[in-house]
């Protein structure tokens, strides 16, 4: 059940937006289970301190096994393409060699929470997908505007500190739907 973020307490440092963190694991037996039925709400937060509190008790993505995802989205945006904020947008997809997921995920979400992308209201949320081979980091935004997606890519390259020749790909959600990937 979703719970809205508490108001930042006295002395806490508010964030520009409130965020919610979700978890999903691919169900083994029941393949007909809908994507949203697998989504589990973990917590929402409104301040830097609330974020660290939650971040420190959840398992680091790199320490998880199997087919699992963390989704960190602005409060009010559900982590699925059908949401009004997402349906005309897309995502940067970054494939990570095993062993990099926890560090890259933390770098990405700190840049998002700290408003380092400088693209107005464009950022919707971020996902880390733990898979059997490479792990996948993605950053979702509202529109397909190329100026915006290029600016997001530049910031991603700066904040993630990725190994050279890391593959980055931008994909509109409508294209992911057509070729039946990601959803």
């Amino acid at each position: 059940a979703f719970r809205p973020a508490p108001k930042p307490g006295e002395g806490e440092h508010p964030l520009q937006y409130n965020y919610a963190i979700w978890f999903s694991r691919r169900s083994q037996g029941n393949k007909s289970m809908r994507y949203d039925q697998n989504l589990k709400f973990i917590a929402s937060f409104a301040s830097v301190e609330q974020f660290w509190n939650i971040h420190s008790y959840i398992v680091r993505p790199g320490d998880m096994s199997g087919h699992v995802d963390y989704h960190l989205f602005k409060e009010g945006i559900r982590p699925m393409w059908e949401d009004d904020a997402n349906k005309h947008g897309g995502k940067w997809i970054i494939r990570l060699k095993k062993g990099l997921a926890s560090r890259c995920w933390e770098n990405l979400i700190l840049a998002m929470l700290g408003e380092q992308f400088m693209v107005g209201e464009e950022i919707c949320g971020a996902v880390i997908s733990i898979r059997f081979q490479d792990d996948i980091l993605s950053l979702w935004n509202r529109s397909n505007d190329q100026t915006i997606t290029s600016r997001i890519r530049d910031t991603l390259q700066r904040v993630l500190n990725l190994p050279p020749n890391t593959i980055m790909e931008y994909k509109a959600h409508t294209d992911s739907l057509k070729d039946n990937t990601s959803f």
Partner: peptide
């Protein structure tokens, strides 16, 4: 209005605040 911006080092610093425990 003004955006609330934090760089990485500031967020890491606040991780150690007693309020973040």
């Amino acid at each position: 209005g003004t955006r609330i911006v934090y760089d990485r080092s500031r967020l890491m610093q606040l991780r150690n605040s007693p309020l973040a425990k």
